[in-house]
């Protein structure tokens, strides 16, 4: 688990416009994650179109590129959360991802996430959504 790092968290609006993109990476420029977030829209759109009645709006792994794995979550207001992880080689648990992708997700188990990265990320998400809600909600 130690190698898993959140590289970027992106929130994309209903019209596929970026709402917020935060780069946690020290190696890659913002631009790369903008590109990644943008391309992930394709996959999200395809996922949603192939199984529109999917009960879970957690979309799981969208795609992996180079050493980055892109995960997606779609709210029912069509706001997309995209999380980019750097993973050398490990199994990423869906439950972990769900909790990152959706700040309102309740963990089933009692196990808490210890990783500092996770916490900062969630903090970031929390702070950020506070701002965004006022903008995005009509």
């Amino acid at each position: 688990m130690s190698n898993i790092k959140i590289q970027c968290i992106a929130i994309i609006g209903k019209m596929n416009n970026p709402l917020y993109i935060k780069n946690f990476s020290t190696t890659h420029p913002d631009l790369k994650y903008h590109y990644i977030a943008h391309t992930s829209i394709d996959v999200i759109e395809e996922r949603v179109s192939t199984s529109p009645e999917a009960s879970d709006t957690y979309l799981g792994l969208l795609y992996a590129m180079e050493d980055l794995a892109v995960y997606g979550y779609l709210t029912n207001t069509r706001v997309k959360f995209v999380v980019v992880l750097s993973v050398p080689d490990a199994v990423i648990k869906n439950s972990d991802m769900k909790s990152v992708c959706n700040p309102f997700y309740n963990l089933d188990g009692k196990k808490s996430i210890v990783s500092k990265r996770f916490i900062t990320a969630i903090d970031a998400i929390g702070k950020m959504t506070g701002e965004e809600v006022s903008i995005s909600s009509p």
Partner: peptide
Amino acid sequence: MAGSGINPTMVLQ
């Protein structure tokens, strides 16, 4: 494996 999950590097694209 604890819980379901996948290794992104193991997913053939």
